[in-house]
């Protein structure tokens, strides 16, 4: 590109538009080469401006949360992309559902019966638990309300464990809400737009979950490693009473997750003599890469623990 635009004779351009089929192909080619090369300085300035804008946006976003509304505004345009990308799976499920619906209905009806029995016991147990807690002088625990949501997309980078769900601000979802599936703790909401939200899974490398071992209330933190099949507990001393098969539940410390949701099961405890801490691996209980339906648990509506603990959420929690 040694020659500069305006001086160049039109002849030395290869004509990109074959033989004037549309009549003004030549004209637009002439326009195009002008538009691209008429002023190198315009291109340069545009490039520099856009680069500066990018750098500014990245810097602002790395340090503050000012850009969250911008992101959720763009997300309204971005949702269709996810819906289209999810269509093959959606259709596959639809065919599955249609072909198995009769059997499925029967199986689910049986399951509803079983679970409603459990739910009745749970209501009684919760009422009793709250009575006992009152006797002990501690507040009754309020169980949050839940919202059933469907997965509409997965962030494709294998190093990032994030999913998109189909509920957003219009449904009352807010940043920080916990997400569970039928088997355990799933993750938390980190971005919300109008009709969708991004959920950070507990196995994401940037995620840490405050946990306790349900057998003896030993507290620790489970950090994600970017793998769906295990997480690791941090800073567990050699003397800690933890073994294979222990159930690990959320401890509720940190104020983000409600207490007592299953997080995983200890699969391996390794005490290497040269290491400073024991290596404890936990297999997540939630079906992190299989669940299509997850529940958003709203942060407790009554922050000062109003006494209506038993009735709230009892309808859906079963």
């Amino acid at each position: 590109m040694s020659s500069r635009g305006p001086q160049r004779a039109p002849d030395d351009l290869p004509n990109p538009f074959p033989a004037g089929r549309r009549g003004f192909g030549d004209l637009s080619a002439g326009d195009a080469s002008k538009a691209l090369f008429r002023s190198d300085s315009t291109t340069l300035y545009t490039t520099l401006t856009l680069a500066a804008a990018s750098v500014l946006l990245i810097a602002i976003e790395a340090n503050t949360r000012f850009l969250d509304p911008v992101r959720s505004a763009v997300a309204i345009l971005a949702d269709p992309v996810y819906y289209v990308a999810e269509t093959p799976y959606f259709l596959g499920n639809l065919v599955d559902d249609l072909s198995n619906s009769a059997l499925e209905v029967e199986r689910l009806e049986r399951r509803v019966l079983e679970l409603s029995l459990v739910a009745q016991q749970a209501v009684a147990t919760r009422a009793e638990n709250n009575r006992l807690r009152e006797l002990l002088g501690s507040r009754p625990r309020v169980s949050g309300q839940v919202l059933v949501t469907e997965l509409i997309g997965v962030v494709p980078d294998p190093g990032k464990h994030r999913i998109l769900i189909d509920k957003g601000t219009v449904d009352g979802v807010s940043v920080g809400a916990s997400v569970v599936d039928s088997q355990g703790l799933f993750g938390q909401v980190i971005e919300v737009s109008r009709a969708s939200s991004v959920v950070l899974l507990i196995t994401d490398p940037t995620h840490a979950t405050p946990i306790e071992v349900s057998r003896n209330n030993l507290r620790s933190i489970a950090t994600g490693l970017g793998r769906y099949d295990w997480m690791e507990l941090e800073a567990v001393p050699f003397s800690a009473d933890i073994r294979r098969g222990d159930l690990v539940v959320s401890s509720g410390l940190g104020g983000r997750f409600p207490r007592g949701y299953p997080v995983g099961e200890v699969t391996e405890v390794e005490k290497h003599p040269t290491a400073r801490f024991a290596t404890v691996r936990v297999r997540p209980s939630a079906a992190l890469n299989r669940s299509r339906h997850v529940l958003v648990v709203f942060p407790d509506a009554a922050p000062d623990g109003a006494a209506d603990g038993a009735p709230s959420g009892a309808g859906e929690a079963g």
């Binding site: 856009l50 680069a51 804008a53 990018s54 750098v55 500014l56 946006l57 990245i58 976003e61 790395a62 850009l67 911008v70 992101r71 763009v74 997300a75 345009l77 971005a78 992309v81 996810y82 962030v155 494709p156 980078d157 990032k160 994030r162 971005e191 991004v198």
Partner: peptide, 15 residues
């Protein structure tokens, strides 16, 4: 748009 879709920092893919 790509930044939002891929949940990457805003401005990165544009750049």
């Amino acid at each position: 748009l790509l930044d939002v879709v891929l949940s990457e920092p805003l401005g990165l893919n544009g750049f």
